[in-house]
């Protein structure tokens, strides 16, 4: 037994030091040298003040802004210290209720819109922090935002197109629009 103890304990301590201290420190060093902005959270500023991260969704409910994915984090949506999905099952009546309420909210702020409501605009994201919506969800909101801001539909449409990303490397993921970046661009207009 004694022949096991010393190797086990010393090897455990040494491997812990290498993988638990040296490794994360080395990666931090490399990351902060090569990709400082990304390593620190891809923050965006407006007037010199940090207003968010391009990777973390924010809550928008005003007619003049594009809305992002619904968020199920508590106690408020898009809480970036409590990432979480809703975990509602497909048959759970609570899911139907909350989707109904979200559709109603969209209709209330934009009563004349008769387009079908894109699914991602009324279902909670997995992280509760999804920064993006589908191009369909952006398209659905263009009329409302243009009206609220007294802009031409074409102007807003062009801005949405500018902020639409296709599939990465043409094969990975889905086309998408970053909501915070789009709304900041609208504010800057």
């Amino acid at each position: 037994m004694k022949t096991l103890l010393r190797p086990a304990i010393t090897l455990f301590v040494l491997l812990s030091a290498v993988t638990g201290i040296l490794y994360p420190l080395a990666v931090t060093g490399i990351a902060k040298t090569l990709f400082p902005a990304a390593a620190n959270g891809s923050l965006v500023e407006k007037g010199g003040k940090p207003v968010g991260s391009t990777l973390i969704g924010q809550s928008f409910t005003g007619a003049q802004y594009f809305w992002g994915r619904p968020s199920a984090t508590g106690p408020y949506p898009n809480n970036a210290t409590a990432s979480s999905g809703s975990n509602l099952g497909p048959l759970n009546p609570a899911l139907a209720d909350v989707v109904k309420a979200r559709i109603a909210a969209l209709k209330q702020v934009d009563p004349s819109n008769t387009k079908p409501v894109p699914i991602d605009l009324v279902t909670a994201s997995a992280s509760g922090l999804d920064p993006e919506i589908s191009p369909a969800a952006a398209e659905y909101q263009i009329g409302r935002v243009a009206k609220a801001r007294n802009l031409k539909i074409e102007q807003v449409s062009a801005l949405v197109n500018q902020h639409t990303e296709g599939r990465q490397w043409a094969v990975f993921g889905e086309p998408r629009v970053n909501v915070l970046a789009l709304n900041l661009a609208l504010d800057a207009k």
Partner: peptide, 30 residues
């Protein structure tokens, strides 16, 4: 989810959206 279709949500797949069951999924992954 057929229940959500019944409520008026559009789950069809188009060039503009992934469609399908998006509850608990991220937009970039669809």
């Amino acid at each position: 989810n057929p229940i959500l279709t019944g409520l008026g949500a559009d789950q069809t797949v188009t060039a503009m959206q992934a469609g399908g069951n998006m509850e608990g999924k991220e937009t970039r992954f669809g």
